[in-house]
Design a binder for these strands. Structure first.
Lengths: 203, 203
DNA sequence: GCGCAAAAATACGTGCCACGCATTTTTCTG
DNA sequence: CAGAAAAATGCGTGGCACGTATTTTTGCGC
């Protein structure tokens, strides 16, 4: 695997996804046609659907990738590490900006948060983002089950941990995007993870 | 409110939702046209879209209603009751079959679970179900924040509890639908809720 | 280098669906 | 019972997902 062919494919996929995000942020969701996204990347409209099976999927793709990396990292970390420490480390790693930031226009986090909010206001996008999270959650649950020597079909634990981790991530992101407290994700996310790990007794 | 007018509207909405579920279980998702659903209820296709803004929304509606009831029940319960006890009680209440079972063909839980699995295999449906859960989660978070005298914009706690409750519900449902263990929801759900409430230390 | 097989991109066509707008029918209210 | 409000409907439009057939590109062994 990882031949030139596949890397080019991934590059095209990333380009389409990025173009979808950028155009949507600029013009709004309904003003962007699939044709536009394809044109921005220099590809035929039909080809777009060879990469993504819906308009929304292209936007959720970046979210999906980030979330999947969390599971992957959990698998490749030191096996002896306590579970929650490994989770914490892997989760924080996802906050580091990836190499795709080069393409990112230099706007501040406020504009970015605003863009996110606008996007998630669109029902179709919200739904697709959640679906991406769900797919990643499944991967995460499998990784955890492997680590703990458990069975996904029989034990609640791996699924519960995976679901709780995603829940904590989502909640932290919501609070961050909404921007009530000025705290950055690097603060909110670990706090949320520690809370779900330790339990949520009535305070 | 609650005049004859609104009750008729709700009846139509429920009928459309139910027809969508039944037809999809019978013929499969892509074989059901909006026209069919409307015809089954005796309403014009255009009217369908006055009730639901997408084909999938009609199916997710039942899930949405059930989930919303959880939040509503939390609000109307005894305010002095400890939070997690109230949650447990409200969650278990949702498992009791509602009055809509009269319309349900007398098929066993196995066929029903199989139908559910087929439906959730459809990406568009999975996404819409998740969105419904998210909407309910927001209500739930608000109800919890009210109870605890907290602020949704400032405190992680209400959102985290709400997200964890939904996560536990979903995980229990997944395990039940997948059917690995023969345990009923009445067993799986309380166990999952107790686990997220108490925390998830590495076992 | 070179041609061949596999894979990807494209062109074209189809059916469904979401939705805006204008009109008709039904229901509530005074 | 009459007028107003709200819901249902008819009609038309544009876009999107997708099947199929065709062309172009790419990887690879010789």
């Amino acid at each position: 695997m990882s031949g030139l062919r596949e890397r080019k494919k991934e590059a095209t996929r990333a380009a389409l996804s990025w173009a979808a995000v950028r155009l949507t942020a600029e013009r709004g969701w309904s003003a962007v046609k699939v044709e536009d996204i394809a044109a921005a990347v220099g590809v035929s409209p039909r080809t777009y659907n060879n990469y993504f099976s819906s308009k929304a999927e292209a936007i959720a793709f970046r979210h999906l990738e980030r979330s999947l990396r969390l599971a992957a990292e959990l698998r490749h970390g030191p096996p002896g590490e306590p579970l929650w420490e490994a989770i914490m480390r892997a989760a924080l790693r996802q906050l580091e900006p990836g190499p795709e930031v080069e393409h990112m226009p230099p706007q501040g986090p406020d504009e970015w948060a605003a863009g996110l909010r606008v996007m998630l206001a669109e029902p179709a996008l919200e739904a697709e983002m959640l679906r991406a999270g769900k797919i990643a959650e499944k991967e995460l649950a499998e990784a955890i089950a492997d680590r703990a020597g458990m069975n996904l079909g029989a034990d609640l634990y791996p699924r519960l941990v995976a679901a709780s981790v995603m829940a904590a991530s989502n909640v932290a992101l919501e609070l961050f995007v909404q921007g009530g407290t000025g705290e950055p994700m690097e603060v909110l996310l670990p706090r949320a993870l520690r809370m779900v790990a330790a339990g949520l007794p009535t305070p």
